[in-house]
């Protein structure tokens, strides 16, 4: 995710002649006296820890607002659980899905969405940040801009999702040690997929200059992740697993928790890593086209 490595690999955008080397004049002039050695780079975890500490402090600056927003989101999530309760109460099990498994699905979804939208909130705003020139501040720091930005903002409303999801799994998800471990694995995969997908569609705005398509993609992914997509047949199911990876965000992890399967677990992990890598790559490549807000037009 570093800019430097990538920019060096890119010959087109950068420069006509020898941009890898400092221009002759500079090299010549500098030969008299060596530059001071670089200070040791700071480990990335320390940078991210410091940044997210500040993000938390900022979110908690208005403490009453913080907790009321969390409460609202929990109410919102409870309504969904009520819906599923009513649904399965009438319908019974549908193609292997019953209320118990649905609870796990919803717990995976709210926990991972809570982490992504709550703790990594800028993932959702990647397109906006790129289009409006808000990456400048991150680019002025000796850090990976993507990693820094992701942890730069905490959104209390969605932290409510996180609390709800964990609470739901503990209360109704039958949290045996094995199930907890698989749940954690599933959440990790879902976090990677959601973050990677959001960064990927948001990075489109480096090329398009605006991020409507990204917004729609985001809504679609979260919307479909709300449902056990396995109950659909044929093309719909393929679409929801392959095109919009919603199936891997919630349905696959929920199935794993209930009924572990090594192949599905590895497949979900592979998809997660692939989507995350795609997002990081799109961002890094797009950064070369970054215009710092100069071409942002409301066409």
């Amino acid at each position: 995710m570093t800019v430097s490595r990538d920019a060096r690999a890119n010959g087109r955008d950068a420069v006509d002649r020898g941009d890898d080397e400092p221009p002759p004049s500079a090299a010549e002039a500098g030969s008299d006296r060596p530059e001071p050695p670089d200070p040791a780079p700071v480990p990335v975890w320390r940078v991210l820890a410091a940044t997210s500490t500040s993000a938390w402090r900022e979110a908690l600056a208005n403490r009453a607002g913080f907790w009321s927003q969390i409460a609202i989101m929990i109410v919102n999530d409870v309504v969904w659980v009520v819906f599923w309760f009513l649904f399965f109460d009438r319908v019974g099990a549908v193609r292997g899905w019953d209320l118990d498994r649905l609870v796990v699905l919803f717990a995976v979804l709210t926990t991972s969405a809570g982490i992504v939208l709550g703790l990594l909130n800028n993932a959702r705003r990647t397109g906006q940040l790129a289009a409006t020139g808000a990456l400048d501040a991150a680019l002025a720091l000796p850090v990976s801009p993507l990693a820094y930005l992701l942890v730069r903002r905490v959104e209390p409303v969605n932290v409510g999702d996180l609390f709800f999801g964990l609470g739901l799994f503990v209360a109704l998800g039958d949290p045996t040690p094995t199930r907890v471990a698989v749940f954690a694995y599933g959440v990790a995969c879902a976090v990677l997929i959601l973050t990677g997908f959001l960064v990927l569609v948001g990075s489109l705005s480096f090329w398009a200059g605006r991020s409507d398509a990204g917004d729609l993609g985001f809504h679609a992914l979260l919307l479909f992740s709300n449902y056990p997509v396995d109950i659909f047949g044929g093309a719909t199911r393929v679409f929801l697993y392959a095109v919009i990876p919603a199936g891997f965000v919630s349905s696959a992890p929920a199935r794993l928790v209930d009924d572990f399967d090594v192949r599905l677990a590895l497949g979900t992990g592979a998809v997660a890593v692939a989507v995350a890598a795609a997002g990081a790559t799109a961002f890094t490549v797009g950064l070369r086209r970054y215009t710092s807000g100069a071409t942002w037009t409301r066409a």
Binding site: F87, R90, V91, G92, A93, V94, R95, L216, H219, A220, L223, F224, Y227, I231, F232, T236
Partner: peptide, 21 residues
């Protein structure tokens, strides 16, 4: 497009449920 997505998934859910029931 948003309507299309929401409606197809929710309608699909209920239709599947009715068939199953």
């Amino acid at each position: 497009v948003f309507y299309l997505m929401v409606t197809s998934v929710l309608a699909g859910l209920w239709a599947t449920a009715a068939d199953a029931a």
